[in-house]
Design a protein around this nucleic acid. Structure first.
Lengths: 150, 150
DNA sequence: GGGAATACTGAAAATTTATGCAAAATATTT
DNA sequence: AAATATTTTGCATAAATTTTCAGTATTCCC
């Protein structure tokens, strides 16, 4: 439950501008999770999410961009594992299948890894398309992901 | 005064583990500055400093490592304000009119904001089309842009 | 210099976030 | 399965942060 919730949190904050924990809570409840602000505060701490200032002068929660803290933290790692169902690749494209609704979470986790070989990724509902720099990189990364999963 | 204080803040948080604004205030006063916690809150916001989790499980203030918070994008932000002429939206599409030839600049600035609710944007000569995730996001972001322009 | 606009600040209120503690849920061991 | 340990959570509240409002200082422009 906790992992799913945190995966959802990842998805929410990477697709919406969330200014407060109460707001995040509301979104979570909308998605069918239950919980309280206290739990979210703990999740945020555990996931190393930070509250940053946008260029519009508003605050928003975001995955930490600091090298020190974003080295694909074990937590993101766990979440990633939880929601990925299957991985494969062709040419320089990796396709990741996830549990329904959690593709964005997986995508956010991949972004947070900030791999140099990843050109970018696009998340749908249960599928993430990852564009790699070349075929080699795709093979390698796909292997690493599979490795991670078992 | 403000600049000096903020410079000192930078120095302090990069040499000590500061967990709260009160603590930072104490350090500042030690260094001969005067002020209140409210002022520090404003400084922190302005400087885009974030509160992150250390590996020890404690919190600490740190300079943001996120790309969209760099001074470069702050500059883009300024440019953005200067080249936008008019903003409006319909459904989930925002249309931004700019001074002739400056649409790409505005588009780049929007990209640099990396707003979660922005799916993508396309710039012509004096017009930018911004595709938002949904109607609500369009209304909100459009309002925020107008707000920014004053 | 004088007046208007702008930026800065403190005090207090309002909001937001973190946490101690006990209970509930989950996992582990026997 | 029962007993025990561990993790997770809610509640209440403490702690921390943001913001409003009002006042002061500063800058700008004539």
């Amino acid at each position: 439950m906790k992992n799913q919730r945190q995966a959802k949190i990842l998805e929410i904050i990477s697709t919406k501008n969330v200014e407060t924990q109460e707001q995040l809570l509301a979104e979570l409840q909308e998605a069918g999770f239950r919980g309280t602000q206290a739990t979210i505060s703990r999740d945020i701490k555990e996931m190393r999410i930070v509250k940053e200032l946008t260029n519009l002068g508003t605050y928003r929660y975001a995955v930490s961009g600091n090298e020190q803290t974003s080295t694909f933290s074990t937590r993101l790692n766990t979440i990633f594992k939880e929601c990925v169902v299957r991985v494969d690749y062709a040419q320089n494209i990796i396709v990741i299948h996830t549990l329904p609704g959690l593709a964005s979470a997986a995508g956010a986790a991949i972004d947070a890894m900030s791999m140099r070989t990843v050109v970018g990724c696009l998340s749908g509902d249960d599928t993430v398309i990852v564009v790699m720099r070349d075929i080699n990189a795709a093979a390698t990364f796909c292997g690493e992901i599979k490795n991670l999963l078992n």
